[in-house]
Design a protein around this nucleic acid. Structure first.
Lengths: 222, 222
DNA sequence: TTGTATTTTTAGGCTAGCCTAAACTTTTTT
DNA sequence: AAAAAAGTTTAGGCTAGCCTAAAAATACAA
């Protein structure tokens, strides 16, 4: 089935708005505001998307993604986030410059491209915000692990994985003496630059910049 | 000025067709065939492009790119060829898989992106076909240098530069004892895999795979 | 040079995706 | 529960980019 760029943007908007409150459908007005066009235009499009079975739509009742629509949304999110990783990690863009470009790149159509890009980037599990990247089947990482920099409270964490596989980064970690399964105690979070002072395995004190903690996946230690 | 994806494709088509015979304008029929749509649709679009001053168009007389249109065409070609290099060098696509994807990527709008991509790829001067990549100002490499694999005849060449700057490649060259300015004598070209048997500086014999000769820029020795 | 074939343009129509304004539902207020 | 407000849909219109068919211009051949 051929889906236009515009349709993809609607699917993405419905996906992202439906997260605010998954119980109720996304309203026409919210979509109209989010997409910067008028409510009447939204209604037009919702009818077309419903015909394509991408959404469940009932007049005046708001709209939900169908299973098919959800799958499509996740594929778009996957592409968006992978391209973001590419732009930041490989092309040294800064966070604020990246969004508009990724919005364009996410619509490039090629399964093969995105799988190769994923491999090229080292199969990252989270984008540079710490948002999870859906896998090729559209599944979001279900573990409770998140990049360390997503946590805002001191306390004890367990190091369960990395989000970047480059040699320099892995070398940095081993220089710090950090191995999978070890515990990290966050002793201080610097609000200004989001850097972390930590104690690894109750021994050495170390210092993680935001860039480092963005790539260290941890779970809260129970 | 905002140019649509469709308009960009017309500009590109005019650019490429006008090379067959730069003296006469590109005909409506040729464009219609090249773009897979009908002659009447082409006429429509030519009027619009003429209004935007991207082409010189006179009824029944064929069409030429204006300076502005030419600049735009070269920018698109630059993007297309840089993305091709990316897909082949970084994502290990094979030649035949690349075209459709590059056709999409060439329309991504961001100056900054393309300059960073160029730097990331090591400022290649030729794409993997050996077609020259216009620089950021839209100028094509004017020297007579071309990648070695573009030459189909035995004889003497001078090594004037490289088309790829990765460490492994440069190390390979220095292992071969090849330095800028030295001469390369092609003794045999293997038609099957386009590999070259050469003599460097009249001394050692060496063997260049297509991938190596694609990245060695030479001029014919006079 | 005059008739025929080819090429190009014009005219009228269609769809996707947007708009405005009016009509209709639903929700909120009194 | 009726009136007012807010939200949504419908109806009619617009543009970009395509189509077909007919008309006009150009090129070719006798």
């Amino acid at each position: 089935m051929e889906v236009s760029l515009t349709e993809e943007n609607y699917i993405k908007a419905i996906f992202s708005l439906s997260k605010h409150n998954p119980a109720i459908g996304v309203s026409t007005n919210d979509l109209s505001e989010h997409l910067n066009n008028k409510a009447g235009s939204v209604t037009d499009m919702l009818k077309r998307l419903a015909e394509k079975k991408l959404i469940h739509y009932e007049k005046y009742k708001g709209v939900f993604l169908s299973a098919k629509g959800e799958k499509m949304a996740l594929a778009i999110v996957r592409k968006h986030r992978l391209w973001e990783v590419f732009l930041l990690d490989k092309l040294q863009f800064t966070w604020d410059e990246v969004h508009d470009i990724a919005e364009q790149l996410e619509h490039i159509k090629s399964e093969e491209l995105i799988e190769r890009l994923d491999a090229f980037l080292g199969h990252p599990k989270f984008d540079p915000h710490g948002d999870p990247i859906p896998n090729a089947k559209g599944q979001l990482n279900s573990s409770k692990a998140k990049p360390l920099n997503q946590f805002k409270t001191k306390g004890n964490y367990v190091f369960v994985g990395v989000n970047e596989h480059s040699k320099p980064f892995l070398q940095h970690l081993s220089a710090l003496g950090l191995k999978i399964g070890e515990s990290i105690k966050v002793e201080e979070i610097n609000a200004f630059d989001n850097s972390f002072r930590v104690k690894i395995n109750k021994k050495e004190s170390a210092f993680f910049s935001d860039k480092v903690s963005a790539n260290i996946l941890v779970e809260v230690k129970k």
